[in-house]
Simulated assay, not measured.
Amino acid sequence: MKSGQSIVVKRLQQAQNAHDLEAFLACFTSNFQGEQPAHPEKAVHGVEHVRKNWSTMFDDIPDFHSELLRSAVEGDTAWAEWYWFGTRCDGTRFGMRGATILGIQADQIEWARLYMEPV
Results as ranks from 00 to 15, higher is better:
F32P: 00
R51A: 00
Q33K: 11
A43R: 14
P40A: 01
G34A: 03
W54V: 11
H65N: 11
N53F: 13
A26L: 05
F32M: 10
N31D: 10
F58C: 08
F24W: 06
N53D: 15
A38S: 13
V73M: 04
G75Q: 11
L69H: 01
L69A: 03
R51F: 04
F24V: 01
A26V: 04
D76I: 05
A78L: 02
F58R: 00
P62V: 06
A80S: 12
A18M: 05
P62I: 03
D76R: 15
R51H: 03
T56M: 11
W82Y: 13
L21I: 11
G34T: 09
L69Q: 13
F28C: 05
E41V: 08
G34S: 07
F28K: 00
R51Q: 06
W82E: 00
G34Y: 08
D20K: 09
L69P: 07
I61V: 13
A23W: 05
S71A: 09
H39V: 14
C27R: 09
E74N: 12
R51E: 09
F32K: 01
H39P: 03
K52L: 10
P37Q: 02
H19K: 07
D60Q: 15
S66H: 14
L21C: 02
V50C: 04
G46N: 05
G75M: 07
S55N: 11
A23T: 04
D76S: 14
L68D: 02
S30Y: 06
E35R: 15
A78H: 07
C27L: 10
P37A: 11
H19V: 03
I61A: 02
Y83M: 09
V50L: 11
R51I: 07
D60W: 01
Q36A: 15
H65F: 05
Q33A: 12
E35G: 02
W82V: 09
N53P: 02
Q36D: 10
L21K: 02
N31I: 05
E67T: 12
E35W: 10
W82G: 01
W79T: 13
S55K: 04
W79Q: 07
D63H: 05
G75I: 09
A43L: 08
F64M: 08
V50H: 01
H19E: 00
H49P: 00
P62H: 06
V73P: 00
K42N: 13
S30L: 11
E22A: 09
K52M: 12
F28P: 01
E35M: 14
W54M: 09
F24M: 08
Q33E: 07
